[in-house]
Design a protein around this nucleic acid. Structure first.
Length: 425
RNA sequence: GGAGAGGUGGCAGAGUGGUCGAAUGCGCCGGAUUCGAAAUCCGGUUUACGGUUAUGCCGUAACGUGGGUUCGAAUCCCACCCUCUCCGCCA
């Protein structure tokens, strides 16, 4: 959620900055509803004030044993008027909230302006894609060996975009997650967390999945209670500080979790249907930082580096992209994507996304810290990044480390998690 | 799933219809005392929203959540959520 003061005081400028990311803010509608809100709220508060003072007078009169009939008559009509006003206020505030909750974050000034991914700018590359002296196979062909990667079984059990992993490949997948979590918790200073995969509606509103993107989520309903499967552990980790006031010396609060993620992938029909690039269920090691506002952009660089180190230790060539205004997610003010080299596609594919959301999620969550300079609770900044997507990392390892005979070499960093194995075959 | 107890400020804990945003204690901040400290004493110490002739002032709201009764609700009524204890079940 944007700062309401920004919308009230700098509406035209805010609309212009939102337009850079392809969002059209209906300023006339906003101004109309905001004017109504102000009028109704002022009226309501005046009525409440009147009722309070009159009621207090009645109490004092009764205490003195005086007759209260005149006072009672005076206050008679207030109740109904007040009730009507309070209802009107609730209505207008609900409409205002619906509008506000649907407005995306403002892009940071360092973000290039552009409509889609073609305007993203490459920041740097690491590693050199390997040259093969045989015809490379993609991960689906490699995975067909020994039933390692079985899309048909996944479809039988659940439908499209589900996969069964078996044998040494399943073990390699697990090794990747273990390796990443160990790296971030033991070397990068993140606190290991194990979090709920099913969360309530408040949590989904806090990090911005709701109310706008419900169709992207899997939901559960038990009795009257509707809950949602997390599309990323960002939801669980970030909402830990919802409604909290964090002490200054606890910041930055760095948390990491290995979790399952569930995405409905509505609107992705036909994209990446082959293999396990885009699944309804996948695993990810997620990094979340809760930071002081003055430190969040430094923290963003640091977090992105933590993700890059994963790929470097795995020996996977990648590049860092700075997303343009039109390609960023709803909550982000600035996002770096890491793209890993996939030999079968001859291109780089997204494997991590690291975003600074500044106070956008914090305002929705009422997540604050106590600023020692002011003594007041102020909104924190929240950041999240994949460090990294486990399923896509598996694909990258399979394809980049494949051998002519269809076996797959195990990257040095993973061998201790694979009982020392140098290759799987 | 059954039975019971309970949810009040940073914490503990009073308050069962009226001047209660809420006693008291602890903690915290400032001051006095002191060579300094402890102890003691004095004062201060929630948050959100709105207004404003803004480093202040005024108003409104908030005692788990949502409704209801009432001129007036932390207090009475209803529903729900959560926590704890015991029993059952279960990984």
């Amino acid at each position: 959620m944007l700062d309401p003061a920004l919308l009230r005081g700098h509406l035209a400028d805010t609309a212009r900055r939102l337009a850079a990311r392809g969002y059209t803010l209906d300023t006339a509608a906003f101004e109309a509803i905001e004017a109504e809100r102000k009028r109704v709220q002022t009226e309501t508060q005046e009525l409440q004030n009147l009722r309070n003072t009159r009621s207090k007078a009645i109490g004092q009169a009764k205490a003195k044993g005086e007759d209260t009939a005149a006072l009672m008559a005076e206050v008679a009509g207030i109740g109904d008027r007040l009730k009507a006003n309070e209802q009107a206020l609730a209505d207008v505030q609900e409409r205002l909230a619906a509008l506000s909750l649907g407005i995306p974050n403002l892009p940071h000034e360092s973000v290039p302006v552009g409509g889609d991914e073609h305007a993203n700018t490459e920041q740097h590359r690491w590693g050199t894609p390997r040259t093969f002296d045989f015809t490379v196979k993609d991960h689906v062909e490699l995975g067909a060996h020994k039933g390692w990667l079985d899309g048909d079984a996944g479809a039988k059990l659940s439908g499209a975009r589900f996969t069964v992993l078996r044998g040494e490949l399943a073990r390699l997948h697990r090794a990747l997650a273990q390796f990443m979590l160990d790296l971030h918790t033991q070397e990068h200073g993140y606190l290991e967390c194990n979090v709920p995969l099913i969360v309530n509606s408040d949590a989904m509103h806090g990090t911005g999945q709701l109310p706008k993107f419900e169709e992207d989520l899997f939901a559960t309903q038990v009795g009257e209670t509707k809950r949602y499967l997390i599309p990323t552990a960002e939801v669980s980790l970030t909402n830990i500080v919802r409604d909290d006031i964090v002490e200054a010396d606890a910041l930055p609060l760095r948390m990491a979790a290995h979790s399952l993620c569930f995405r409905a992938e509505a609107g992705s029909h036909g994209r990446d249907t082959r293999g396990m690039i885009r699944q309804h269920q996948f695993e990810k090691v997620e990094l979340v930082s809760i930071a002081k506002p003055s430190e969040s952009f430094d923290e963003h660089e640091r977090m992105t580096r933590c993700a890059e180190v994963v790929l470097e230790k795995l020996g996977l060539p990648y590049r860092r992209m700075l997303l343009c205004t039109g390609d960023m997610g709803f909550t982000a003010t600035k996002t770096y994507d890491l793209e890993v080299w996939l030999p079968s596609q001859g291109t780089y594919r997204e494997i991590s996304s690291c975003s600074n959301c500044v106070d956008f999620q914090a305002r929705r969550m009422q997540a604050r810290w106590r600023n020692p300079d002011t003594g007041k609770p102020e909104l924190v900044h929240t950041l999240n990044g994949s460090g990294v997507a486990v399923g896509r990392a598996l694909i990258a390892v399979m394809e980049n480390y494949q051998n002519a005979d269809g076996s797959i070499s195990v990257p040095e960093a993973l061998r201790r998690y694979m009982g020392g194995a140098e290759r799987i075959a």
